[in-house]
């Protein structure tokens, strides 16, 4: 009865003021951005559901650089649609530089 999940890999560029935000902060930033964007978020199953995200790399606090994160959705969704909906919900200093279906 597990719900099918559709992963999309997003590459973000963290720069400017956003370099002061940790990986843990990034989880909150992305979760709330996904919620505001009204995207079909995949939640972890269980007693305390939360948004599922997986980071493919880490970035030290205070460093300008790129961050790869896999987002999961409950429907098949075009990467471009994710990009379009997410961009206006991301803070200044967090840019999407890549968005593709993750296999």
């Amino acid at each position: 009865m597990d719900i099918q999940k559709y992963p999309i890999k997003v590459t973000l560029h963290k720069r400017g003021e956003m370099i002061y935000f940790s990986q843990l902060d990034m989880v909150r930033i992305l979760e709330r951005a996904l919620r505001r964007a009204g995207l079909p978020i995949y939640f972890t199953q269980g007693f305390n559901p939360h948004v599922k995200l997986s980071f493919l790399n880490g970035l030290k606090l205070g460093v300008d650089g790129s961050l790869e994160v896999v987002l999961y959705f409950t429907q098949k969704i075009e990467p471009d649609s994710v990009r379009q909906k997410l961009i206006p919900q991301l803070p200044e200093g967090l840019d999407i530089i890549g968005c593709e279906v993750k296999n």
Binding site: E17, I19, Y20, F21, S22, L61, G62, E92, G93
Partner: peptide
């Protein structure tokens, strides 16, 4: 200014959503 030298620099940035 390099905020990374302070503990929890997030709280001095003032770029919250809204």
């Amino acid at each position: 200014m390099n905020f990374a030298q302070f503990q929890k620099p997030q709280r001095y940035i003032g770029n919250e959503w809204n």
